[in-house]
Write a protein that binds this DNA or RNA. Structure first.
Length: 543
DNA sequence: GCCGTTTTCGGCCCGACTGTTTTCAGTCG
């Protein structure tokens, strides 16, 4: 059975081929459907099985039919026909930076060039010289793109946890070293998408040139791709593209809204503006020539008659209708988190380490910390905390510490005696948990499940059935926002790692929180936003 | 090809930047 990602790839392939044919709106329609298919929380076949394809945003009669064919046969005849008409090498040309569908089409129809190799030969033979629209710089640019092609990662998206420290360091550098008033990150990073294609940075400044100078001198910057009066684009050492824009203060909110997206969210907002006789763009909300909002994002939404929407929820546009109807969830916020169920400590952690983590928790208003004491790497089953470590935990006055142990369904029957609760994780068997463990101590958390919402499904269901939370966050061992949404949909509860005790730029806490928010989790659905069960009443830490 | 809280037809964003240009086309986001 094909995966959702494979189905989305097929739709994108159709979109790219239609681009070459010069179609105006169909390519975007296919791409929108592809985005929707990709973010489904259940297999496409299951959606199709209950007749739900047409409910997928962007999927209408024609695309639903193609998806049905794909599920049944693994092929889409329409795509096969397109492939038969259009040389596939043209797609490779189109994907080279600086080349698009128009140019690829011209190469094909005017010069008979059907792929990168032929284009290289044509340039070497001087066949592009004198062709209208191809001056020396353009030819050189194409030659460079062809040379870089084998290593180019166009369209590559970076995991947000990889981008997070880079993004923070850019902001810190611009705040500290450049003549800026406001500095904000926008784009899919601000929406806390799981992956980020490029990073958008917005600043206000009356000295754009100096801001660009500071920015492009950062050690992580690999090359400057372009620089104009208001915008500079660079590529970082790891290949991440970063766009820096300087905007005037009166337009800052509009620009932040516009560049945060998503695309579909903005399309919906523009429709609302048009219907209200307004115009919205990155410079503001306009009635005729007059700008009626733009300085803050709140003004922009208010002027549109739409409640402000948290960035993490700005996706397919339906959130706007939900917000207007008052049914948009109020997502969990950092201030809601009063505990953390899942820290790890080495068995030889000392008093200074405990005190440092406790102080960080105290500063952030986190009163209860559940810790797992890690045993030797090959130990079978949960480790016990050494007496000295237990003394440190008991003596720390800033935080209430709780001992937990990780267990698999195989080992859950033999937990150590001194733990307060268990953290269940998949065992060696890759398949679904076959037993609901008996519980000498309660299982409060299911963790290390992984981001694939389909593989995670049995664990989501298990967590729900034993009234345990399931952990959300970045990386290969946690649910992402799609998985978290699936968990919430079946009535489950999330646990959101806080990153307490970790370095300042560590992505775990902020990204985990962002994923929970994207999933639409309210504080009521987050276990560590609630008082610790059976917790002793204690003085609340100050914030 | 999709969509609709004025629409089942007629829209679907548009500005910055680059390279090529005598005023604009293509790409990108």
């Amino acid at each position: 059975m094909p995966t959702n990602a494979e189905a989305a790839d097929q739709l994108r392939e159709i979109a790219d081929l239609l681009d070459v044919t010069g179609e105006r709106f169909k390519p975007e329609a296919y791409r929108r459907a592809a985005r929707s298919v990709e973010s489904l929380t259940e297999p496409l076949a299951a959606v199709a099985g209950r007749g739900g394809l047409r409910e997928i945003p962007g999927v209408g009669e024609a695309i639903a039919e193609k998806l049905t064919e794909f599920l049944a046969t693994g092929r889409i005849p329409y795509l096969d026909r397109l492939h038969a008409e259009i040389p596939s090498g043209l797609l490779a040309l189109m994907r080279l930076p600086g080349l698009g569908p128009k140019t690829a089409r011209r190469f094909w129809l005017e010069l008979g060039i059907e792929g990168p190799a032929e284009l290289g030969d044509a340039i070497a033979a001087g066949r592009l010289v004198g062709v209208a629209g191809f001056g020396p710089k353009k030819i050189e640019q194409i030659r460079g793109a062809l040379a870089a092609a084998p290593t180019a990662r166009t369209g590559h998206r970076f995991p947000i946890e990889e981008v997070y420290p880079i993004a923070r360091s850019i902001v810190d550098a611009l705040v500290a070293g450049a003549p800026t008033e406001r500095v904000e990150l926008a784009g899919s990073f601000r929406r806390c998408r799981e992956t980020v294609g490029d990073l958008d940075v917005l600043v206000t400044s009356d000295a754009a040139e100096r801001v660009f100078d500071v920015f492009s001198a950062l050690p992580e910057v690999h090359e400057i791709r372009m620089r104009g009066p208001t915008k500079e684009t660079v590529v970082m050492r790891n290949g991440l593209q970063v766009d820096l824009r300087v905007v005037e203060p009166a337009a800052f909110g509009a620009a932040l809204q516009y560049f945060t997206g998503s695309k579909d969210h903005n399309v919906r907002l523009r429709t609302i503006a048009r219907d209200a006789g307004l115009k919205i763009n990155e410079y503001g909300v306009f009635r005729g020539e007059e700008r009626v909002a733009g300085a803050t994002e709140a003004d922009v939404y208010e002027r549109m008659g739409v409640p402000w929407i948290p960035p993490e929820l700005r996706e397919d546009g339906h959130e706007i209708d939900a917000a207007r109807a008052g049914t948009l969830p109020d997502p969990v916020a950092a201030r809601d988190l009063v505990g953390d169920l899942h820290l790890h400590l080495p068995p030889l952690a000392d008093g200074a380490t405990i005190a440092r983590i406790g102080a960080d928790a105290h500063r952030r208003g986190i009163a209860d910390l559940g810790v797992v004491v890690d045993g030797p790497p090959d130990a079978d089953g949960p480790a016990a905390a050494p007496d000295e470590l237990r003394r440190f935990l008991r003596d720390d006055r800033s935080t209430r510490w709780h001992l937990a142990a990780e267990a698999t369904p195989d080992t859950v029957r033999s937990p150590v005696a001194d733990v307060e609760y268990l953290i269940l994780r998949p065992g060696r068997a890759p398949a679904a948990p076959s037993v609901v463990p008996d519980r000498p101590v309660p299982v409060r958390l299911v963790a290390h499940v992984g981001p694939d919402p389909i593989a995670a499904r049995p664990w989501i269901d298990l967590a729900r059935s034993i009234d345990a939370a399931i952990e959300v966050g970045p990386g290969p061992e946690r649910l992402d926002s799609t998985g978290a949404r699936a968990a919430l949909a079946v009535g489950g509860t999330l646990s959101v790692p806080t990153g307490v005790g970790l370095p300042e730029r560590d992505p775990l806490g902020p990204v985990a929180l962002g994923f929970a928010r994207r999933a639409g989790a309210t504080a009521a659905r987050v276990t560590n936003a609630r008082p610790w069960p059976n917790g002793r009443p204690a003085a609340r830490p100050h914030r």
